[in-house]
């Protein structure tokens, strides 16, 4: 038998009429049921991320160092994916860096009233880190048409009295006005180790 080319033809095994007892014949069928699901989790960040969050409170960005290659990962996850080893050493990286690439979200996101489209989410690589992560790039006089790969940016922190153990301490990143950074390799994201961590 060949492939069923007509989706409106049900498979033979399912084509029989469903019989409903007479007693139920007049009842309106139930089309759907809604089951609210609520589960509570008390999440913990783990060792490395909690160090990162504590540093954040001091307006510092820290990264993990791969014990084999020296590659620096921000944010730290406690493991180096290039060696499969637990990281033990952390280093401070700069709160300045460059844009590797970016997205401009031009539609409102449900449940995120704090984000006002159009806004720029960019892969930002802090100086001293080999990896980037996605961050908001903004600023009062930011011209969206001016955002570009290689653009230099710096972190804009919350006021000191509002700092918490939270990644949200960085409100966004804004252009520094410096000359563009040279992007090591346009096919690749992040600085390779031999490209130097500076």
């Amino acid at each position: 038998m060949g492939y069923n080319q007509d989706p409106s033809v049900p498979p033979a095994a399912l084509s029989g009429a469903v019989s409903i007892p007479d007693a139920l014949a007049d009842l309106e069928p139930v089309r759907s049921v809604t089951t609210p699901l609520r589960m509570e989790y008390t999440a913990t960040p783990g060792a490395s991320l909690s160090k990162y969050l504590r540093a954040m409170k001091e307006k510092r960005i820290i990264g993990d160092v791969c014990p084999d290659t020296g590659m620096v990962f921000v944010p730290p996850r406690g493991v180096s994916p290039v060696s499969g080893k637990r990281t033990t050493e952390t280093v401070d990286v700069a709160d300045e860096g460059y844009i590797e690439s970016f997205n401009i979200t031009r539609i409102p996101i449900k449940g995120r009233d704090d984000l006002h489209p159009p806004y720029v989410s960019a892969w930002v690589v802090p100086d001293g880190s080999n990896t980037g992560s996605i961050a908001l790039v903004a600023g009062d006089d930011l011209d969206l048409d001016d955002v570009r790969i290689g653009m230099r940016v710096k972190a804009v922190w919350k006021p000191d009295d509002e700092l918490e153990e939270s990644a949200a301490n960085i409100l966004h990143w804004e252009p520094t006005g410096e000359p563009d950074a040279e992007v090591p390799d346009m096919m690749r994201i992040g600085r390779p180790t031999d490209g130097g961590a500076q």
Partner: peptide, 25 residues
């Protein structure tokens, strides 16, 4: 996740910078 900030609007927000990179290369 209380530990990281997410400003990605779904998968499109993740893949858009990669596509941009391809376009530029």
């Amino acid at each position: 996740s209380p530990f990281t900030t997410s400003i990605n609007a779904g998968a499109g927000g993740y893949f858009s910078p990669i596509i941009r990179r391809y376009m530029e290369v």
